[in-house]
């Protein structure tokens, strides 16, 4: 009897987990106001030649932005300084995406950037912020 109860509990937990996961992963399209944009800052670690760092992260960004239907704003891809964390120089990049991403797209983009898509490249998302100029609010 105890074994049956244990199996029922495990099955119920798995079913609830799957339902919650399904609810979380549902694709919901929240329209963003005109002129909104999303700023992204990522810290990058690579196991290749340092000269290829920017090329590799650019490749990853160009792949991930297709998932959320957004474009990298022209000349927005820059190397930024990070004096707060122990990251080597030239390893933190910032770029801007247009149009701005809603909450679900932000989650998808963050997962794509942090995933192991590119071999020998690990990216950590430091900032992912959507700015809507109309009311000046930000959506992190």
């Amino acid at each position: 009897m105890k074994r049956v109860i244990a199996w029922v509990v495990v099955a119920a937990a798995a079913a609830v987990g799957l339902l919650l996961l399904r609810a979380e992963l549902m694709t919901v399209d929240v329209p963003q106001p005109e002129g909104s944009y999303t700023d992204v800052v990522v810290a990058v670690e690579i196991r290749e030649d340092e000269a290829e760092r920017e090329e590799m992260i650019r490749g990853l960004v160009s792949t991930c932005r297709l998932l959320v239907n957004a474009d990298v704003a022209e000349d927005s891809f820059t190397v930024v300084e990070d004096s707060f964390t122990k990251v080597e120089e030239g390893a933190v990049f910032a770029f801007r995406l247009r149009p701005g991403l809603d909450e679900f797209d932000q989650r998808e983009l963050k997962g794509c950037l942090r995933d192991t898509r590119v071999q020998h490249l690990l990216a950590d998302v430091r900032l992912l912020e959507t700015v809507t100029p109309a009311d000046g609010t930000t959506d992190r």
Binding site: G17, L21, E24, L25, R107, E108, K110, G111, C112, R114, D115, T116, R117
Partner: peptide, 15 residues
Amino acid sequence: LFVYIYRWEWHRALL
């Protein structure tokens, strides 16, 4: 597996 799927990290979830 659940955590990676929740984070949309599909390659890690596959592994």
